[in-house]
Computed example of a mutant assay.
Amino acid sequence: MFTGIVEEIAIVKNIVREKENLHLTVSCSFVDELKIDQSVLHNGICLTVVAIGSETFTVTAIKETLDVTTLGQWEIGQEINIERGMLANARLDGHIVQGHVDTVGRCVSIQDAQGSTYYGFEYDSKVKHTTIAKGSITVDGTSLTVVDSGINTFSVAIIPYTREHTVFKHYQLGQLVNLEFDVIGKYVEKLLQIRSV
């Protein structure tokens, strides 16, 4: 489990394909604190540490993960948001994030608001999950509050600190992002579907 509070920006150092799997090697400041089998969030994707070097660690993504995320399009040298799993005795400063990406979204608007920045996103109309105003959404592993919510669209407002310390600072129109909808909302949606049958 994660909080969506990005720990730092890491750098992709190597990408190796092996059959349908992809091995991703990443550098960050806390490599010496990691352990094999530990979960780390990479732009919202929960991946397991399989190897640790002196300054890098490696994780493996399977085909299912590659099919529903942006990971297959990443490049060497790319910056990504990372976060280690939440400690049981820690404050939940963001919201409950599982690291299970629901779909890929696209940035459709970026607006400067003289102190904050508004980003608008859209996602496939076939995705049945929804957002609500003032609800939670995870964009590339960043816990955010929804400002406006529409059918298959939503917007968020980013304060300067968040923009500077996450990959949001690199976003451009058309940017593809990993989306994870609020897990509580997904359970409510499922229960309503069952009751309507």
Rank of each mutant, 00 (worst) to 15 (best):
176 L>P: 00
113 A>Q: 13
134 K>N: 14
139 V>S: 02
187 Y>A: 08
133 A>F: 06
91 R>P: 01
106 R>C: 08
75 E>M: 11
105 G>E: 06
143 S>F: 02
34 L>M: 15
139 V>T: 10
13 K>S: 09
23 H>M: 09
36 I>Q: 05
55 E>Q: 13
143 S>Y: 03
182 D>V: 07
3 T>K: 05
182 D>P: 04
195 R>H: 09
4 G>M: 07
4 G>H: 07
18 E>F: 07
102 D>N: 14
39 S>C: 13
122 E>V: 12
131 T>L: 09
174 G>Y: 08
77 G>W: 11
137 I>V: 15
107 C>P: 00
136 S>H: 12
90 A>N: 12
103 T>D: 05
179 L>V: 09
79 E>Y: 05
173 L>E: 10
60 T>Y: 00
85 G>S: 15
145 T>M: 06
35 K>Y: 07
97 V>C: 03
112 D>I: 06
196 S>Q: 15
112 D>R: 12
87 L>C: 10
96 I>Y: 13
96 I>Q: 02
54 S>V: 13
8 E>W: 11
72 G>W: 04
97 V>N: 01
191 L>F: 15
107 C>R: 03
95 H>S: 06
70 T>P: 01
121 F>M: 07
142 T>M: 14
105 G>M: 08
64 E>G: 04
10 A>P: 02
86 M>G: 04
177 V>M: 00
22 L>W: 04
